[in-house]
Structures are given as C-alpha cells and as structure tokens.
C-alpha cells in the first residue's frame, strides 16, 4: 500500500432497509475518503444516513432488514464489503474501533469495567490477563480516569456520564486501532464535559496518529476538531471540503442554510434563517436533487437529475446544478441585466 494512499475509501455505497412499509434507501451512493491521521466530520441532520454509513464501514448493518446493496469500502486496500464475518471480526475493535453516542447503553451493566476493557485485547491479541490489566490501567490514565486500579473493579453504574464516555473511548483505543469512528460522541454530554472529551480526542490523535471519522450534527464541534467535512443530505454527500472551505465558502444551498440556522454565541442580534420544509421521505426519494423541494434557488433540472459533482477547488467538491457552467453563465447574465 502506498504511504500517501487514503486509509479508507468508500465508493458508491448504497444501503437499504426493508421494512413493513417498503424499502428505505438510507444511503444512496456515497463516496468519500479518509487520509491517514486526519479527522473527517460527516455532518447532517437525523435520518440523512450518516450513522448508517459509519455502521456500514464497521459492517454492523443488521441483515435483515438492512443490506449493503452496492459499493465498496476499501480499508488499507482491502474491500470490507467482501470480507467474511470471521475476517471482519478480526478487524473490528482491532484496526477499526467505534465510539457510540450514548455512554449509558454502550457498556454492559453486569460486567466490571476491567472485564469490558480487556475483553477485546484478550480476544484479539491473546495476551495474558495480567498484561491486559496492565494495559487497561495505562489506557485509563490516558483518557483521564483517576485511580484506575480501583476503578477497574467497579461497574458502569458507579461512573458518571462523562466518565463512562471516557471508558467507552478507552475501550475503543485499547487495541490501538488505525481508524476510529465516533458517532455523536458528545451529544449526550453536557457542554463542560463535552469540552473535556473533545480535548481528549485531540490529545489522543496527536499521540497515536489515529484517523478519525466524526459523525455529528453539531457545527461548533466540527469547527473545532475536523480537518475535512462531508455534508450529507437524504442519503447522499452533497458537499465535501476542508474545514475552512465549508465554513467560509459553502457552495451548496443546504450547507449555507445549515450554517445560517444556528445561532452563534459570539454574535449579537443576528437573524436566524431556517431552512423551510423537511427532508424528503427515503421510501421514495426524489429522482433529482433531494434538496430541490426546500431549495430557494431551485431550477427545473434539479427536479429531474441528481447534480454531477463539480470541483469548486481541488479540495472542495459540490453536487449542485448551480455550479454547472450553464447555470453560472445564466446567473452572470441575470446579474448584468
């Protein structure tokens, strides 16, 4: 594998869920990549497919009812969609780890923290119990849990929410993964605790060089820790770019709308401009651009064909017909008149 090659490459990923009411097309052709040591934030609102995408990378889509119907997920050159469950199990928790949103439910209430922390290590790396405990103590110190020796013997209910999330992070890190997927890791936490956890992520990434995919809806968190951003809407990525590309030069009307609808603590008297309407139903997603029905700049073509990807800059890609040369020249003419 080439050194500069991305650690993860997702091509044309499709995931569907069969339900009583029909088939939900949760992820509809997603492409992105993740470079080594960087943090990619996947941003979007509930139901846009961001969690399904991350679960698909971990091959955690329950089948049935879910199914990866098309696409490839290359992790260090290996297509994860083609692996057997047994081979996948050797990757999960070892090479790729995941942190879930709710630290209250991610831990088993009947097992001690020590047992849960060392489980992965003992399963995957066949280390002795003593060695595993040693390592668990080390990693607890890294994530900032005081008195790790004593706390190993305790159960999840004896920990606060913030401490539980630290344990979940320690569990994810103990086998030294190369890729960490964090699905809304701070959403269930208070802001002062969130600040502690975000700082922890930055420290860990500096120390271990782990690549991170951060799934979130919180644009403030994204501004703080993401290197690159992918914006998802209705099962598709509609804009990707570097952190500053997205915040300072957003091109897709949805991205702009999202940025205009959150109040900023540091500004006074700003006007919030919400995006009117609601996202489309993914049982029968629209044929064209899924944002067309809510878009203030909608054109005829938007309802018919999903926009092709255009390169706004080398690092900044957008799927929007407004970026098309024909639309641009038309807009220029209108502006001139």
């Amino acid at each position: 594998m080439n050194k500069d090659e991305p650690i993860l490459k997702v091509n044309n990923l499709h995931v569907t869920f069969s339900t009583y009411g029909g088939t939900v097309q949760a992820v509809r052709g997603v492409d992105f990549h993740l470079n080594k040591g960087e943090t990619l934030a996947i941003v979007g609102e509930s139901g846009c497919g961001k969690s399904v995408t991350s679960n698909a990378i971990m091959r955690l889509i329950p089948d049935p009812p879910g199914k990866i119907t098309a696409g490839n997920i290359y992790f260090k050159g290996v297509d994860l969609t083609k692996l057997s469950e047994k081979k996948m199990r050797a990757i999960r928790g070892v090479d790729i780890s995941m942190i879930f949103q709710d630290p209250m439910t991610a831990l088993n209430p009947t097992l001690t923290i020590g047992t849960q922390l060392t489980e992965g290590l003992r399963q995957h790396q066949k280390v002795s119990k003593e060695k595993a405990i040693e390592k668990a103590i080390d990693i607890m110190e890294v994530v900032g849990i005081p008195n790790p020796k004593e706390r190993l013997k305790q159960y999840p209910h004896q920990f606060s929410g913030g401490m539980r999330q630290r344990i979940v992070i320690a569990m994810a890190l103990i086998c030294e993964p190369e890729l960490l997927i964090a699905d809304e890791p701070t959403t269930a936490l208070d802001v002062t605790i969130q600040a502690q956890i975000l700082e922890l992520f930055e420290t860990i990434q500096k120390a271990t060089g782990v690549s991170i995919i951060l799934i979130t809806h919180d644009l403030g968190v994204v501004a703080k820790i993401a290197d690159r951003i992918a914006v998802m809407y209705a099962g598709k990525i509609i804009e990707t770019g570097n952190n500053r590309d997205i915040f300072y030069q957003p091109q897709h009307p949805y991205t702009k709308g999202l940025l205009n609808s959150v109040p900023r603590l540091d500004l006074a008297g700003e006007k919030l401009e919400p995006i009117e309407g609601t996202p489309p139903d993914l049982f029968s997603p629209p044929k064209g651009c899924p944002f067309a029905a809510r878009c203030p700049y909608v054109m005829e073509v938007c309802n018919k064909v999903f926009p092709v990807q255009t390169e706004y800059t080398d690092s900044h890609h957008v799927n929007c017909w407004l970026q098309d040369e024909r639309a641009k020249s038309l807009l220029a003419t209108i502006a001139n008149e």
Binding site: V191, T192, Q194, A195, Q196, L198, E199, D218, L219, G220, V221, V222, A223, K224, N243, R244, F247, Y248, L259, V262, R264, L265, D266
Partner: peptide
C-alpha cells in the same frame, strides 16, 4: 468558553477553561 463556535478561525484562537 466550553461552547464551540461554528467558525474554525475563532475556534483555533480561543482559550478554553476546562473544568
């Protein structure tokens, strides 16, 4: 200071009081 502001330049310069 704990509340992140959706603006990367500001976030980079901000000092946090971590409780």
């Amino acid at each position: 200071s704990a509340i992140p502001i959706p603006d990367p330049d500001i976030e980079e310069k901000r000092e946090r009081i971590i409780l």
